[in-house]
Simulated assay, not measured.
Amino acid sequence: MRKETIVENLNAVGERIVTCCNNCDRNPAEITLLAVSKTRPAEDLRIAYAAGQRHFGENYLQEALEKQEALSDLDIHWHFIGPLQSNKSRAVAERFQWMHTVDRLKIAQRLSSQRPKNLDPLNICLQVNIDGEQSKSGIAPQDLAALAREVVKLPGLSLRGLMAIPAERQGISAQQEPFARLASLLQHLREEFPSETMDTLSMGMSGDMEAAIACGATIVRIGTDIFGARNYSA
């Protein structure tokens, strides 16, 4: 994609965030824009970085590691946001700052044991299957608290909050419904585990970002509206 287009798109998304925050009485500084860069070439990430973007989300581990090598001169905050097989957890533990898709204790335990002692704790979100879709990963809402009780005990990890990908809905009111449920789940966790660091709701993408922010999102994961339609055949 042309450099000018990526920069223009980043600016447009930033303006959407500001407008939405103004409409729901929130501070735009509370929102982290996570540029979802899966299938995009490293040069596109470099362009976005030069325009001020620092947080990038990757779904595919091998692709992400190749980009990390190509962009090692940049101070990027790397987020892993895809499903992770337990036998590939070490690379995430060693090379990322955030992991958004923890949905079972085994993965958390491996990330904990494999996180290098010289690094800050790995920030993690527990992924909730908020709509109970069989096609999506995530823990069931009723099982969330039990998982959280075990995860908070693990060294090398910082449980920051929750992540979800709701079923697609039309209209902002319908979109807000699952986001409001996720926000309520986080509030219950905060009451059981008081912590200044359990502050994250990773929710909202290009098509439902406004609804997510209105319901308390702190990280919005935006790909298409920054980098354009993805090319999965490349």
Score class of each variant (00 low, 15 high):
R2I: 07
E4L: 03
I6P: 12
V7A: 07
E8C: 03
N11S: 10
V13M: 04
R16P: 04
C20P: 00
C20E: 14
N22K: 15
N23Y: 02
D25H: 15
R26M: 09
N27G: 12
N27L: 06
A29N: 13
I31V: 08
I31L: 03
A35T: 13
A35H: 11
S37H: 13
P41Q: 12
A42G: 14
E43P: 00
L45Y: 04
R46S: 01
A48I: 06
Y49N: 04
A50F: 00
A50M: 07
A51E: 11
A51P: 07
Q53M: 01
E58V: 00
A64K: 10
A70W: 08
A70H: 11
L71G: 05
S72F: 11
S72L: 12
S72K: 15
L74C: 07
L74E: 04
D75I: 00
D75N: 15
I76M: 13
I76D: 12
I76W: 08
H77K: 15
H79V: 05
H79C: 00
H79M: 04
H79R: 09
H79T: 07
P83E: 14
N87K: 05
N87P: 02
N87V: 04
N87H: 11
R90T: 08
V92A: 01
E94Y: 02
E94Q: 15
R95T: 07
H100T: 00
D103A: 03
L105D: 12
K106D: 15
A108M: 09
R110V: 06
Q114K: 15
Q114Y: 09
R115Q: 03
R115P: 02
P116D: 02
P116G: 07
L119S: 11
D120K: 15
D120P: 13
D120L: 14
P121E: 10
P121L: 14
N123Y: 05
L126A: 04
L126F: 07
V128G: 10
N129S: 06
I130W: 04
I130K: 13
I130F: 05
G132R: 03
E133T: 01
S135P: 00
K136C: 09
S137Y: 11
A140Y: 07
A140H: 12
P141S: 06
P141I: 04
Q142C: 02
V152H: 06
V152T: 14
K153Q: 15
P155A: 08
G156M: 10
R160T: 02
G161Y: 07
L162C: 03
E168R: 15
R169H: 14
S173T: 14
Q175T: 12
Q175S: 08
Q175I: 01
Q176N: 09
E177P: 01
P178M: 08
R181L: 04
L182I: 04
L186P: 01
L189K: 00
P194G: 03
S195T: 05
S195C: 06
S195F: 10
E196W: 03
T197L: 10
M198Q: 11
L201F: 13
L201A: 12
S202M: 09
G204H: 10
A212S: 12
I213Q: 13
A214T: 05
C215H: 14
A217T: 11
T218W: 09
R221Q: 07
R221P: 09
G223E: 09
D225G: 01
I226A: 00
G228V: 00
Y232G: 01
S233W: 11
S233M: 13
S233G: 08
